[in-house]
Every structure is written in C-alpha cells, then in structure tokens.
Amino acid sequence: MMELVCPAGTPAALRAAVKAGAHTVYCGFADETNARNFPGLNFSREDLAEAVQFAHVHGAKVLVAINTFPRAGAEALWHAAVRDAEQAGADAVILADLGLLDYAAEHHPALRRHLSVQAAAANPDAINFYAETFGVRRVVLPRVLTVAEIAAINSEIDVETEVFVFGGLCVMAEGRCSLSSYATGKSPNMNGVCSPASHVVYAEEGGELAARLGGYTIHRRPKDAPAPYPTLCKGCFTSGAQTGHIFEDPVSLDATELIPQLAKAGVTALKIEGRQRSRAYVAQVVRAFRGAVEAQAAGQPLPKSALAKLTEGQAATTGAYAKTWR
C-alpha cells in the first residue's frame, strides 16, 4: 500500500490523523525552524515526545519538518531542533538547507533524512546529489512535475519519492521564492511563513472587499462572494490589457484520481498539505485518502472524492501532474 503522509499542526491533529488511518504524520516545532511557523501551531519538545509515543503505539511514524533555511549566526536553533527530534524518537527529519543537511549527516548519522519540497529537487541530478552527498533516503518532489516526469525521475534514482496529492499548491519552485518577503518582509525560507496573516488587511470599499498584503492589493471580491485567503501568487492582478490570476487561480490540489498513475510511476508516499488546518479537516481528508490507497492496493476502483468542499476557493485541480499548462 502507498504510504499516506499526513499533516499535524497540533498534538490533537496528530492523534486525529493517526486514528483516521495515517501511516505517517509530519509536524514541526513551534518556532522558525519549520515552514508552517504560524501562531498557535506546532509542537513543544514534550508534545513531540508524547506524539511519537502515541503514534508508535498505533503503528504510525512521525516525521519532523525542520525545513526553513537557518539564519546566519543563529544556526544553533536549527541544530537543537535536529537533536531534539532524534531524542524524541522521530522516524525522520525533513530538511531543505544544504548546511543543515551537512550538519545532520555528520552529527546525527543514524537519524533518517528526507529532503523537503523546500529544496525543490526537480530532476534526477539534484536528487542524486542530495542522496550521495548527505545520505538522503526520501525526496518530497516539487509540485511542478507531471506524472510522466515523476516516472522518469524514479527510473534514475535509488531513493524513495513522496508527492503532494491534496491541499495548498505552490506554483513557484518551492524554497526559491521571495515574493512574500518582498511585500511583507516575512518569507517561507527565513521565517517559515508565506503571505502571513499578520500583514493582511481587509477593507470594504464600494460594495467590494479588498484584501491587501503588506499594502499591496491581492484581490477584490463582491462583498457577499466567498473570498479566498490573499496568498500572493494566487492574487488577481493586471498586466497590459489583461486582468486576472496572472500566476495561478485560487485553486488547491486534489490528485486523488491520479493515485493509480502515481503508484505506477513508482511513488512511495502520498503527502497531504495542511499543518495549519483543523483536526476535523485533517481527519476527514485522511479518512478519504486512506480509503483511496486501500482501494488502489486492492486493485479496486477509487472511491469518488468527497473532498471538494474542503478545497480552497471551492475549486480543485490536479495541478501539474496532468500537464494542462505545458
């Protein structure tokens, strides 16, 4: 069966995910060492130790994301995160930074290392580089590849691959985007946040709701229409005579129907995005995907996705996997 890797922003969400059928749960510490550094989210050291124990008792694994890029002069914070993840009994750490990978390989060789999507390793050379240099055992692939490209990559590498199948969708090469810090000063790479809520302002103007990020208008919607969160790259902008979603529509990823193809392409694990989501959301998504991977393993038709209501902006896409934009 394909491994289902599920998000947990809180210990309660982790328990909910495990009970709903997650094979593996990923989480992070409550600081800037992980790429979902949101207020009220994430794990203390004690939380993590308890969570690992709970997961292991229930036959599930725990991965710890330490996937921001350590700040020059403050690397001790990231080093401590790797050490504490190992001490808590985590099954692997998910890393992105060259320096931190080097550190972990040297100082914590027994701790399994996964390459974060934030490292944006998009071809076999990049993956083989991380595997040969730092002993990385699994790579989370960027969300810009098609199924055919994933299959081709798997034929040239010896490590496992994990791909996103549900949740938010980055359209830029992950870990190589400073759009958010250009507008707000806070970036995924340095601060673990993108388009942070602390810099969002809504204003009612002439029957419309304007959403601004760092003072830049990201979109305007009729007052009573559903308004998606103002994520910068999914904003509505103008260029020349055109107005619209210049980069990406406010859709989110749902690749449920591609699970059989991803399995054939040699993918080991399916990842669900959303550590910022509620435990009810997590439980519902995990249950649906567990059903799907069980059906896939049994060679049965996939259950119809019941997840449309959960996707951002009420619209879902199979993303790059189905190659509609090439």
């Binding site: 890029f69 002069g73 390793a121 990049a126």
Partner: peptide, 26 residues
C-alpha cells in the same frame, strides 16, 4: 544546485544568487 552533480570534484566554481546560501554551514 543540480549543476553540482555535473561538476568535476576538483573544479573551482562560483555560486549565483539563485542558490540558497543563507548561513555559515551552507
């Protein structure tokens, strides 16, 4: 970074601004 995989081991090189060099260890 994947260019490193093609670069001979003994070859000197430069690193451009699109490679993430954020800290001492990197």
């Amino acid at each position: 970074l994947s260019a490193l995989q093609k670069l001979p081991q003994d070859r000197e090189f430069w690193v451009g601004p699109l490679v993430n060099v954020y800290n001492d260890s990197a």
